[in-house]
């Protein structure tokens, strides 16, 4: 029963993921990615990590996908419906993906006790989660925050208007 459920969910995560990567239509790709992330949240819920599942929907499907869509709408000239995805970095992206897969697979392989049945559901208890985040793993947590901050600053720098200030004034009809 559980195995069947898992297989169905895994298919629901993998097929949209493939469509997101291979599709030419950028908007469709973003929405397929959302579908894939939603199925991943369902897998989390199945494993008893209901809090993680909820946050996955809230942050990734609700937040990140919205940001992506907003990015496409703001940066592309939309002549008609199709915003085409084009990339000159497909080879490099594939190499990174394969490496990442190998690392994660290795990490999972190296973990003990995977054969043991899931005894108790992973706690959705707020205080335990909070303690784990800001006491036990505080270094990783802060490192992540710093990384995100750097990413935001980087995004602002990349997106900043490059033309000189008088060019902006020239746009206003006198």
């Amino acid at each position: 029963m559980e195995g069947t459920f898992f297989m169905v969910l895994a298919a629901c995560a993998l097929v949209p993921a493939w469509l997101a990567v291979r599709g030419a239509n950028l908007i469709h790709a973003a929405l397929w990615l959302g579908a894939s992330l939603l199925a991943t949240a369902a897998v989390y819920a199945m494993l008893g990590a209901s809090f993680l599942a909820g946050v996955q929907v809230l942050v990734y499907v609700g937040g990140v996908i919205t940001l992506m869509i907003f990015g496409v709408m703001m940066t592309r000239r939309h002549e008609g419906l199709v915003a085409l995805a084009e990339s000159r970095h497909q080879g490099r992206a594939a190499a990174i993906a394969v490496t990442l897969f190998a690392v994660i697979a290795q990490a999972i392989n190296a973990t003990d006790g995977l054969d043991a049945p899931l005894s108790a559901p992973v706690s959705a208890n707020g205080s335990a989660l909070g303690r784990a985040l800001v006491v036990d793993h505080v270094l990783a947590f802060e490192a992540l925050s710093l990384l995100l901050l750097a990413a935001i600053v980087g995004a602002v720098v990349i997106a900043r208007r490059r033309d000189p200030p008088d060019a902006r004034e020239a746009e206003v009809p006198s």
């Binding site: 929405l31 209901s50 809090f51 929907v57 809230l58 499907v61 919205t66 008609g80 419906l81």
Partner: peptide, 27 residues
């Protein structure tokens, strides 16, 4: 659910995607 609050907020946030899909696909 023991995460009822998150469920409500998350689904509320997802309605954005329906709005977007409607606005974009209408051309």
């Amino acid at each position: 659910l023991d995460i009822g609050v998150i469920w409500v907020v998350a689904l509320g946030g997802l309605t954005v995607i329906a709005t977007f899909a409607a606005g974009w696909s209408s051309n």
